[in-house]
Design a protein around this nucleic acid. Structure first.
Lengths: 127, 127
DNA sequence: GTTCATCTACGAAGTGTTTCGTATTCAAAT
DNA sequence: ATTTGAATACGAAACACTTCGTAGATGAAC
């Protein structure tokens, strides 16, 4: 998807996007079953949310007849990037570094993780 | 402040916290004037928000008589850390590394920034 | 073709957030 | 003491998001 517009899903919408990003296109039923593992809401709630997301063009759908199959219309990396970017701007004065340091500070990162980040940095510096 | 509870300010509340974090304790008037630079809402709106934040114990206040002086009761680093942590969990499968890579990927970090992050990593690995 | 389980559509209630108007209090200046 | 300008308190409207119940459609199984 190619949208200039800011992607700003609500929290519930984001949960649904996560599922679709992870599992690919799916029915309301499937999404609802996954959601049920962590929250306890009715089927029609999930349905309604996904219908609203369809209106907002966060999702697309196909399938005539009884059952519809929904697809995320927003790109995972793009959406994540935008949300991070907003966070960097509003909370860290636009400095990605501050955010990284904060992330690694409060989050107990494993040594392996730290090493991988270092490797990534090295590779990034070279180019 | 020392709270186990999750800090989850709304977007408007966060804007106010930003200002108090940056400027220190301040009156409603002062906060409102700063807010006015980016949004266009009435004075009583800001007042009401800050009163609600007082109830929620996001802010404290002092000053008897006419004017009150409000202070952020939540620690900036702690709040930022929690919000980042949530983001890492919900959007990056709990991997700080993925988030860092995404952040550094979409955000064009300068070489200086990268070096500082590396230095920070080194220091962190030692401990 | 009737029954049944399951799906969609949709209105509307419930809840949380934001906004503002109005009443009241306060203190400084007159 | 009265006036005045600015502050607080607070109810309530406006808005957004979440939740669910009910009605009606659909297709599979009988």
């Amino acid at each position: 998807m190619n949208r200039k517009q800011q992607i700003k899903p609500t929290e519930s919408e984001l949960e649904i996007l996560q599922i679709l990003w992870a599992s690919g296109p799916a029915t309301v039923r499937t999404v609802h079953e996954q959601l049920s593992q962590t929250k306890d809401t009715g089927y029609t709630t999930t349905l309604k949310l996904m219908q609203i997301m369809l209106e907002k063009q966060l999702l697309g759908r196909e399938g005539s007849g009884k059952t519809h199959i929904y697809t995320a219309l927003v790109n995972k990396e793009q959406a994540q990037g935008q949300m991070l970017q907003r966070m960097i701007e509003t909370m860290f004065n636009g400095s990605a570094m501050k955010m990284v340091m904060q992330a690694l500070g409060s989050h107990k990162a494993s040594k392996a993780e730290l090493d991988m980040i270092r490797a990534y940095l090295d590779q990034k510096t070279k180019s």
